[in-house]
């Protein structure tokens, strides 16, 4: 899977804002995303083709969290991206 369109991340007052860019992005989602560190990291990974398993592995290396919690979190974040139409197979 990967992102269907470009989503730029910008830091603002310690928060991370995701901004979908381009015509397709605007048509699909006309707003901004407020991201936590993990979601921003996953978004970065999704800029190139990657599997869910690979994402979990990469996040595990980056953040020291138990695998169970991490798998749930990654799935939740991927689902929310999927629901918004950000992902393509």
């Amino acid at each position: 899977m990967r992102l269907k369109f470009r989503i730029e991340t910008i830091g603002l007052d310690g928060k991370i804002i995701g901004v979908p860019v381009g015509e397709e992005a605007t048509a699909c989602f006309g707003g901004v995303l407020k991201l936590n560190d993990t979601a921003a990291y996953i978004l970065e990974l999704l800029k190139s083709e990657i599997t869910e398993q690979e994402i979990i592995d990469r996040v595990e290396k980056e953040y020291k969290v138990s695998r169970d919690v991490l798998e749930k979190d990654v799935k939740k974040i991927l689902n929310s991206f999927e629901e918004r139409g950000f992902l393509t197979e």
Partner: peptide, 16 residues
């Protein structure tokens, strides 16, 4: 800085 970042974000959202 907040003004500059907001301008950048709003311009990106507006698109072409």
């Amino acid at each position: 800085n907040t003004v500059h970042v907001l301008r950048k974000i709003l311009k990106m959202v507006q698109g072409k």
